[in-house]
Design a protein around this nucleic acid. Sequence first.
DNA 1: TTTTTTTGGTGAAAAATTTCACAAAAATCA
DNA 2: TGATTTTTGTGAAATTTTTCACCAAAAAAA
Lengths: 204, 204
Amino acid sequence: MDLSNNTIERLCRIFGHLGAIEKTGVEFVSSAELAGALGATSYTVRKDLSLLGITGFTRKGYEVSSLKKELGSKLRLAGRRKACIVGLGRLGSALLDYEKFQEDGFEIVAGFDRSVNKLERIRTHIEVYPVGSMKDVIKEKGIEMGIITVPGEHAQEVADRLTGCGVRGILNFSPVEVSVPDKVVSVNMDFTNALRFIAAKLGG
Amino acid sequence: MDLSNNTIERLCRIFGHLGAIEKTGVEFVSSAELAGALGATSYTVRKDLSLLGITGFTRKGYEVSSLKKELGSKLRLAGRRKACIVGLGRLGSALLDYEKFQEDGFEIVAGFDRSVNKLERIRTHIEVYPVGSMKDVIKEKGIEMGIITVPGEHAQEVADRLTGCGVRGILNFSPVEVSVPDKVVSVNMDFTNALRFIAAKLGG
DNA sequence: TTTTTTTGGTGAAAAATTTCACAAAAATCA
DNA sequence: TGATTTTTGTGAAATTTTTCACCAAAAAAA
């Protein structure tokens, strides 16, 4: 199947939202409710789901737990995935213990930093290493995804290193867009740009 | 002018990238170079800029410093804007001292948390307050933007409070989409969803 | 000076995405 | 039972966004 990025992004959000609904014990959810929680329309939600061949029940909506299961398997969000964080400054070390990742099946299994000093000072139950041991650690632990929290100046270099070690997914928190090989998926989260966007939308 | 969100987002990224170019001392930049740094095409960059009435120089490209200035004024990214952070856990307190914000004209002038205990323990040069004093502090300091770093369960409540205090822009790091009044601009940054997106794109 | 090359500007075409409209199915109600 | 309501599924229409094609201008080269 050939889903657009927009569709994938929405489906992932639906998946996340279903987790929340599940906790409330509600059994069915309509496309309109999902749309509301997403800031989309019910048409879009139904179309997105139908692109995956997922169908609901007339006059009832979609069954929460089976929808979650289907999305999980169709989008491959079901299994556990291992990730590492490179750059253990304030943000990086905050993310080391970000519980939401674990809850969602993303396991942070290693942190890397250049500074041995920093590695020694850090307090976390996750194992941390000097960047030099990246290759070994990534191979050994089977790490698939890398989270970049180094300053912009070093982001590309870290991305190269990560992909060189076989990492196929990159979440980049630095403000520079990193370029990666074709097969690698990279997403940028630039906080400052988000504030700029808000400021621009606000005008005045 | 009526720019699409995509266009606004790209223009903001261009603005950020121009800062980096400026430091290198390069005077002109072509639409193709900008496109490369953005992961867009040169057509798109030129069209985006032309939508703002910004024009470059034949065979030279755009003059870096004046382009930055024009974007800054047209998108209202030039002035300083005050923001606050609500929720001073790991992430929130990391963001309190995120230097990039300050560099870009976004001043974090207050942090809020429910727990007085946390407020006492926190080490930062930015003033922190109990949530109860939000209204006063926001009015007094002229805070325009709020950054939400509380758990999802409380995100909507915090958003309501912020908008109730007159905040018009919200950057929401919690995994739940908050709903805000029409005039308010809100952007969600859901880390977990970014990882999901990467996982879904990777497949396998 | 003339030609060639590079780069922007932009209306038109193409592609992608979203919305609509309405049939079909199931639950509810009279 | 039969009418009514609600909600999905989806092809078609509408809208939005991106890309293309080509001109003009200016710099560089010849």
